[in-house]
């Protein structure tokens, strides 16, 4: 079922168009990554969906209803969440739950549960002004999910965290995926690769590519074989090039990068030859195109086109 649909969404500031006639939709239960370089309009789109900005034109259809106040069904974490520093973490969560229309008793219960879930229960009675960056980020996620929203929107949820915090938040997102639809923005491609099922690629305010992770992989598939030799790279270089339909792409230290239209056949040819002649191979790898390659390709295309 379609949870959210953006129709011709446009946001202009004076003469600058930040989001330009964007159309997309996603299904309930998916995890969608909004990726794009800095300044592509990711934050603007999220803020517009959250109701913090009003679109210049276009409309948002949530759960089949057009342009209505659906704040009760969304959770939102801004890129740099700011809290009331004089509140404690627990107080802020109770407050968040109460303004989401829960009774005081239920708000308290939810706050306690969520504090455990995001792992800051030990600091619940400390004022937020004493929290570290990672703790604030987790408190931010906690306030966004305290009312069990249908749609959770996270703006760059991991980019400001250290590796440990990053891992923890990604694990938390994996968990939350079971309960709600997640839309998150990032410019770190490996994060998108890790948790999302679907991608929206944004560049200069326009969606330049979108689809499921799997579909996009297939579309931009340019498999490559990586051959690493222990020594004497050059003498094998020719032998590899002699194999029919092989394209040598580049040579890096002792590694040869090879591509071909029929990757299956070339792989077998190389392996047979290597076994027969006893090549000093260190490693043999067939690479799929990474998200980054796809990203560069798409962004360059849209810049040139």
């Amino acid at each position: 079922m379609t949870l959210l649909k953006a129709k011709d969404l446009t946001k202009k500031y004076e003469d600058k168009t930040v989001v330009n006639h964007v159309n997309f939709e996603f299904q309930e239960g998916n995890c969608i990554a909004l990726i794009g370089p800095n300044g592509a309009g990711k934050t603007t789109i999220l803020r517009t969906l959250a109701g913090l900005l009003k679109p210049t034109s276009g409309s948002i259809i949530f759960n089949g209803k057009e342009n209505q106040d659906f704040r009760a069904f969304i959770g939102y974490l801004p890129q740099y969440p700011v809290f009331h520093p004089w509140m404690t973490g627990l107080e802020f969560l109770i407050y968040s739950a109460q303004i989401s229309n829960f009774s005081k008793k239920e708000a308290k219960q939810r706050a306690e549960n969520i504090l455990h879930k995001v792992g800051i229960a030990d600091a619940k009675n400390k004022p937020i002004s004493k929290y570290s960056g990672g703790m604030k980020q987790r408190l931010g996620i906690a306030q966004a999910i305290i009312h069990k929203p249908k749609l959770l929107m996270l703006d760059e949820p991991v980019s400001s965290l250290d590796p440990i915090g990053r891992r923890e938040v990604l694990t938390l997102m994996e968990e939350l995926k079971q309960d709600m639809t997640i839309l998150f923005s990032t410019h770190i491609l490996s994060d998108a690769d890790e948790v999302s099922d679907e991608l929206l690629l944004l560049n200069q305010g326009e969606i330049v590519e979108s689809g499921s992770m799997k579909g996009l992989r297939e579309k931009y598939q340019t498999s490559m074989i990586e051959l690493e030799f222990q020594f004497d790279r050059d003498s094998y270089l020719e032998k590899v090039q002699d194999i029919p339909s092989v394209n040598l792409v580049k040579v890096e230290r002792n590694i040869l990068f090879v591509s071909a239209n029929d990757i299956e056949k070339v792989r077998n040819d190389i392996l047979t030859l290597a076994a027969k002649e006893n090549w000093p191979l260190m490693s043999f790898q067939v690479n799929r195109a990474s998200l980054e390659d796809m990203f560069m390709k798409v962004v360059n295309q849209s810049c040139n086109g």
Binding site: R71, Y76, P81, V82, S96, S100
Partner: peptide, 12 residues
């Protein structure tokens, strides 16, 4: 300072 981004996205 941005606190309102957390408060006003709630259904108040």
């Amino acid at each position: 300072n941005g606190v309102s981004e957390l408060i006003l996205v709630k259904p108040i």
